[in-house]
Design a protein around this nucleic acid. Structure first.
Lengths: 198, 198
DNA sequence: AAAATGATTGACTAATCAGTCGAATAAATG
DNA sequence: CATTTATTCGACTGATTAGTCAATCATTTT
C-alpha cells in the first residue's frame, strides 16, 4: 500500500514522477515511436519493470502525460481573469497567461502541440479536452456581440488567434529575454488584437 | 541502364514515384517511425528490395521527400509576383499562392509542417531550405522601409505572418468549399495584413 | 542471338521493440 | 515478530524492424 508518511511516500511517487518527466522530455525531442521504453526507464533511473508497474502500457503513459499537461495549461490560462474586465483586457490576460506558461513549461507545451491531435491519445481521453476551446469560443462570441471584432466566421477567428498564439510562444522561446519586456509582449498581443478587430 | 523509350522508362520511374507518393501519405498520417518500410513497399506495390534499390536508407527516402516538397512549394509561392505590384497586392498573392498550394497538396503541406524541423531531415539538406524565408524577409524589409508595418522586430513579424498562414491553410483544408469564395479568403488575408500594418 | 546491364523480387538476418515474470526487497499491518 | 502487501528489479520472450543478398527477369547493346 502506498505510504502515508512523507519519507516513505516520496520514494514511490518520485519514481512514477521521474518516469513521467523523462518521458515528456524524450517524447517531445525524439517523438513517441522513436523513444523506447528502455530509454525512458534508463534515463529516469528505474528498471523497465517499474515503468510498467506504474503504467500498464506505453500508450497509458502518453495518455497520462496528456491529461497532466492539459490540466496544467487550462489552470494557468484563467489565472486572474475577472468577469468585469474589458474585452481587450481579458484577451490580453489570456494571451499573457498562455505565453508565459508555454515558454516556462517548454516540454509540456511542445508535447501538447505535437501530441494533442495525434492518434496515440485515445478518443475518450481527448474528448474531455476541449475546455480551452470553450473559453475562447465564449470570448469570441462576446466580441462579436459587442461589435468589436471584424466580420469573420467565429471558427476562423479562433483559428487566427490560436495560430498567432502558438507562433508567439515559439518566438519567445527563442527570445526568452524579451519575455519580460512589455514592448515586445505588447507588440505580440497587438498582432492578435488587430488581426480580428475592426 | 535506364530505358530511353517512353514505355520502358515509365515502368522504372513509376515504381520510384509510387514509393515516394506512398511514403508521403503514410508518413503524414502515421508518422515516420510508425511507418515500416515493409508497409510502404506493400502499399506501393513493390518489393522491399525495390524500395532500397532507389533509396539507400529510410532516411534518404524522407530527405528526398523533403527536397521534393520544398521545391514544389517555393515554385508555387512566387507564381504571378511582379516587382511593380503594390506591397499589399504582393502580400495578398503570396498568401493566396500558399493557401491554394497548401490545401491542394495536403500531403506535401502536412509533411512540410511535420518534418521540416524534425531530426530526420539532415542538416545539409535543410540548410538549403531557407529560400522561402529569404523572399519573406525581403518583403518585410520593404514594408518597414515604406513605413506601412507597425513597429515590431522583423523576425517577430515573420513569425506572425507564417503562423497565421499555417493556421489558415489548416482552416481551409477543413472548409474547402470556402476556398473559392472571396469573402472568406479575403477575410483571412485581412487578418494577416492587419496583424502587422499600422 | 549472345552477352551485358540494370530492375525486381522476397526470404532472410541481426538488432531492437513493448511487455512479462518470478524473485528479491521494503513497508505496512495484526 | 510474523505475515501480508506493495515496490523494484532485470533477464527474458515473441513480435517487428531496417536493411541484405543471391537469384531471376527485362531491356539494350554488340
Amino acid at each position: 500500500m502506498r505510504g502515508i508518511l512523507m519519507e516513505e511516500a516520496r520514494g514511490t511517487i518520485d519514481k512514477r514522477d521521474r518516469v513521467l518527466k523523462t518521458a515528456l522530455r524524450l517524447f517531445t525531442s525524439q517523438g513517441f515511436h522513436a523513444t523506447p521504453t528502455s530509454q525512458i526507464a534508463r534515463e529516469a533511473g528505474v528498471a523497465t519493470g517499474t515503468l510498467f508497474h506504474y503504467f500498464k502500457s506505453k500508450d497509458e503513459l502518453i495518455n497520462a502525460l496528456y491529461l497532466e499537461s492539459r490540466q496544467a495549461f487550462v489552470t494557468s490560462l484563467v489565472r486572474g481573469i475577472k468577469p468585469e474586465m474589458s474585452l481587450k483586457d481579458r484577451g490580453r490576460l489570456y494571451f499573457m497567461n498562455s505565453l508565459h506558461w508555454g515558454v516556462e513549461h517548454r516540454d509540456m507545451f511542445l508535447f501538447y502541440q505535437q501530441f494533442a491531435n495525434s492518434p496515440y491519445i485515445d478518443a475518450r481521453t481527448r474528448k474531455r479536452g476541449v475546455q480551452e476551446i470553450g473559453f475562447l469560443m465564449e470570448y469570441i462570441g462576446d466580441g462579436q456581440r459587442e461589435g468589436v471584432f471584424r466580420e469573420m466566421p467565429a471558427d476562423m477567428a479562433l483559428a487566427v488567434i490560436e495560430s498567432i498564439k502558438i507562433g508567439m510562444i515559439q518566438y519567445f522561446m527563442e527570445h526568452r529575454e524579451r519575455l519580460n519586456n512589455r514592448r515586445y509582449t505588447e507588440a505580440a498581443f497587438s498582432a492578435i488584437w488587430n488581426s480580428i478587430t475592426r
